[in-house]
Design a protein around this nucleic acid. Structure first.
Length: 464
RNA sequence: UCCCCAGUAGCUCAGUUGGCAGAGCAAGUGGCUGUUAACCACUGGGUCGGCGGUUCGAGUCCGUCCUGGGGAGCCA
């Protein structure tokens, strides 16, 4: 007998021959007329399949009646027109096999709404809920679209190292990678740390970005992108930060800042377009239950041009505003969360790209504009989530880069290979980083980033 | 890391000026001819986050720690 997914079963016309479906019971309703309705979900789509279990089944009294939320079953039977409202078809079971029971007294998930805080504590089970099933499917579609987008534009998918010796990119605290016997060292008292004895013979860390290595590859392959995990040991406790998250980082040779912004805008639109056309059921769910209006918002974004304003103008807009901000705005200071939200939520009511930031607040690798006051950096800001993308044209002039490193207190010795890229056949190039979970947050309307990744890692929290 | 808020039944929460621990849902039992957040009735279910203190008496007041949430900083 053919085994099919629930998604497929729901598409079969009434009167289709018997099939087998397998999944987890969401809810069961008994009729004392001697039969039961069992709704199962197998993760293949948001909707469940109703299975009608007649009292004549050999294990009806012994097993089927005892089923409850969370049990796993395999059911076989024809797909028939449903006599009830709420679904077009249902499976009339000729055989139901119980695969795994779930004690109703102990199973944490109930057929009711749970708080996200509660679900976080049972992350191993929360993928069985509507919301997390939808989140996981959206993550999958977005991941696939990331690859589609770049592959279509002749970007190569490259793999950059997760373990790095570079500790001063200015992107927050790093996680140390070591095989040194920490307990032993502590027991013998401090002092005498010798990294020559460590696994790599030097201090190493988990990467905070694949950008620098991606630049090396872009300066050979032309256009590349990475899509991998990234680690920040920053003690950030917000709904927008994770200690381990996924980042998409394209890097393109011969690109300038304008092309970089074009790429970022096209990228976001492509991702949104894929969701609206290929994840309609899940997006309708987010629109209905999580963030009313999100689908319309995404449609608008798809159809509009992103506003692009230089940092100077952003500051002028903020200074001209009648709003009083907790942090004053002044040229030379970074935009605060409240400023970003004001620009994107109130002034433009949509995505905004702010570019040409003051050089003193941006890292050494960004291209210095004439005059030296600003660098070719750009941030894509979106409502609610804030900064979704950060990128820049890279400084490709050897002398300027070296100067900037010293200015920023970065040791050029440690970046010899990076400087080599400017020493030998240097070319203008640009790229950006997109925080994948921030993207998922933005398009689903989920308010906490811990609820858009299956097993979140945050300060003081690394369960599962 | 800083500021604010919260922690009471499996879940979501109420609990008044300090005076017998509550509701809805879930679970169990029974009822109900196709239900769909099923419905109706009954039953069981508590270390009031931990520790210490004030008091005749603390879920309630004080201290401290833990956990979670919201906001900020840092950033994607």
């Amino acid at each position: 007998m053919e085994t099919i997914l629930v998604r497929e079963a729901l598409r079969r016309p009434p009167g289709s021959p018997a099939v087998r479906v397998q999944g987890w019971v969401r809810t069961k309703r008994d009729s004392k007329a001697g039969f039961s309705f069992i709704e199962i979900n197998d993760g293949s789509c948001l909707a469940g399949l109703q299975i009608v279990a007649e009292g004549g089944l050999e294990n009806y009294a012994s097993e089927v009646l005892g089923l409850g939320t969370g049990c796993s079953i395999s059911a076989e039977g024809p797909i028939v027109a449903s006599q009830g409202r709420g679904q077009a078809v249902e499976l009339r079971a000729e055989r139901i096999q119980v695969l795994g029971l779930a004690d109703a007294e102990a199973y944490p998930l109930q057929k009711k709404r749970h708080s996200f805080e509660f679900l976080r504590r049972i992350a191993h089970l929360r993928a069985r809920t509507n919301t997390f099933g939808a989140v996981c499917r959206v993550r999958n579609l977005l991941s696939r679209t990331v690859h589609d987008f770049f592959q279509e534009r002749d970007f190569y998918y490259v793999h950059t190292p997760l373990i790095t010796p570079m500790d001063c990119e200015g992107a927050g605290e790093l996680f140390r990678v070591t095989t040194l016997d920490l307990e032993g060292l502590a027991a013998r008292g401090h002092g005498g740390l010798d990294f020559a004895e460590d696994f790599f013979g030097r201090p190493t860390y988990l990467t905070v970005s694949g950008q620098l290595e991606a630049e090396a590859l872009a300066c050979a392959l032309g256009r590349v992108y990475t899509f991998g995990p990234t680690f920040r040991a920053e003690n950030s406790n917000t709904a927008r930060h994770l200690s381990e998250f996924w980042m998409v980082e394209p890097e393109a040779a011969f690109y300038d800042l304008d092309q970089d912004m074009d790429l970022a805008e096209g990228f976001l639109k492509r991702l949104i377009g894929a969701l609206l056309s290929q994840a309609q059921e899940d997006m309708a769910f987010f629109d209905q239950r999580i963030q009313p209006g999100i689908v319309d918002t995404l449609k608008q974004i798809l159809e509009s041009d992103f506003r692009r304003i230089p940092y100077d103008e952003a500051i002028r807009l903020l200074e001209a505003s009648s709003r009083s901000f907790e942090y004053p705005t002044a040229w030379g200071h970074d935009l605060q969360t409240e400023h970003e939200r004001y620009l994107t939520e109130e002034v433009f009511q949509g995505p905004v790209i702010v570019y040409n930031y003051p050089s003193r607040i941006k890292p050494f690798y960004m291209y210095v504009n004439d005059g030296g006051e600003t660098v070719r950096a750009m941030d894509v800001l979106v409502p609610r989530t804030g900064e979704l993308i950060g990128g820049s044209q890279r400084e490709h002039r050897f002398e300027v880069l070296e100067e900037r490193m010293e200015e920023k207190g970065v040791d050029p010795e440690a970046y010899g290979w990076y400087l080599d890229l400017r020493r030998f056949g240097s070319v203008p190039h640009a790229g950006f980083g997109l925080g994948f979970e921030r993207l998922v947050q933005f398009v689903t309307g989920m308010t906490n980033i811990r609820d858009v990744i299956p097993f979140p890692r945050t300060p003081k929290s690394a369960e599962f």
